[in-house]
């Protein structure tokens, strides 16, 4: 297992460098640069000012020099300096990381827990009203655009009913501490986490249901039934466990995106996370910041892919034996 993990880690580092280089060129191929955006925001500029900005940011250097400087910095775990925000990229990302992780992990737990439970429940009652309702709800949440769900959530729970705050990470200007602060953050978290979770919940529910139905037709389930096991035990121990492989794959993919943030949800709910940071960096051509977010996100995707592969080997002994 250790050899497997170290081999995969080595590959991951090579892939990460390739992704960084590719992203670097993609970003620089987009029209405009941070100097022109910053001059544009100021509403005034002269050639001296633009030149001054480009020199300050090193944008007057040839592209290959800029690339070399960037990649060698990344190799030393230095993600550089944000042109626009005038702060180290690592600091900006780490400031936003807790909010993003809280939102993504909550959505992840909600969607995985409720999605798998709903899918298992529906598959056990195939063709009955519970199955129909769950399948229909899953289809609706799967097909509805997230931003629309988010806005409807705000309209209903925040504007009409006044139950939940409609934006932000916590109440501003009240200085809660301890439990009171945690409760305040939880209140702010419910709407964005539920909205973000609904989509994946629908996916997990559909996938679990389909996979469990498929597995339940296999011979070993018939054997279990013939042995006289209770249906609940068959579903939990035999069907669900064997049906989880595609769910683990999807969970791995979703987990890889945890750090990348959720641009739409973070925007609608003014959630101070990495998704919004990335979007702003893109529109402002803040190269270092954008590349920094990409590097961190890519690293997380690679890490979770690795974890998924390890989990495969634990969940399904056939893979372990085959390799």
């Amino acid at each position: 297992m250790l050899r497997f993990i170290s081999g995969r880690l080595l590959k991951a580092v090579v892939i990460l460098i390739c992704i960084t280089v590719l992203n670097f060129f993609l970003i620089h191929a987009a029209p405009g640069d941070p100097a022109s955006v910053m001059a544009g925001e100021a509403g005034d500029a002269d050639p001296a000012f633009l030149q001054q900005l480009r020199e300050r940011f090193g944008l007057d250097q040839p592209l290959y020099v800029q690339l070399w400087i960037y990649v060698s910095s990344v190799m030393q775990l230095d993600l550089g300096y944000s042109y626009r925000q005038q702060l180290p990229v690592l600091q900006l990302i780490s400031e936003r990381l807790p909010a993003t992780l809280l939102l993504s992990l909550s959505a992840f737990v909600i969607s995985l827990g409720l999605g798998v439970a709903a899918g298992a429940f529906a598959s056990a009652r195939q063709g009955k009203w519970a199955d129909t309702i769950i399948s229909l709800a899953a289809l609706i949440f799967y097909a509805t655009p997230l931003f629309w769900l988010a806005l409807m959530g705000v309209l209903l729970f925040s504007v009409q009913l006044g139950w939940l705050p409609g934006f932000g990470y916590e109440s501003v200007g009240v200085n809660y501490t301890g439990i009171a602060r945690a409760f305040d953050i939880l209140q702010h978290l419910i709407l964005p986490a539920m909205t973000l979770g609904l989509f994946f919940m629908a996916v997990y529910a559909r996938m679990t249901r389909a996979s469990m139905l498929e597995v339940s037709r296999l011979d070993f389930v018939k054997t279990a039934k013939a042995k006289g096991l209770r249906p609940a035990v068959i579903q939990r121990r035999h069907v669900l466990r064997n049906a989880l492989l595609p769910v683990v794959t999807l969970a791995g993919l979703q987990a890889g995106q945890l750090v990348g943030g959720a641009v739409l949800i973070e925007t609608v709910f003014a959630w101070p996370g990495i998704g919004r940071l990335m979007f702003d960096a893109l529109s402002q051509r803040d190269y270092n910041l954008l590349l920094g977010v990409f590097v961190v996100s890519a690293a997380m995707v690679l890490l979770f892919n690795l974890i998924t592969d390890v989990l495969y080997r634990l969940v399904d002994p056939r893979i372990r034996v085959a390799s």
């Binding site: 309209l155 925007t267 003014a270």
Partner: peptide, 22 residues
């Protein structure tokens, strides 16, 4: 005594924030 300048990136959410008195 104090000024809070709040960052709300979405236009519709900014309107809602005013509507709800925040």
């Amino acid at each position: 005594d104090e000024l809070y300048y709040q960052v709300i990136p979405d236009g519709a959410s900014r309107s809602v924030a005013f509507e709800t008195g925040k």
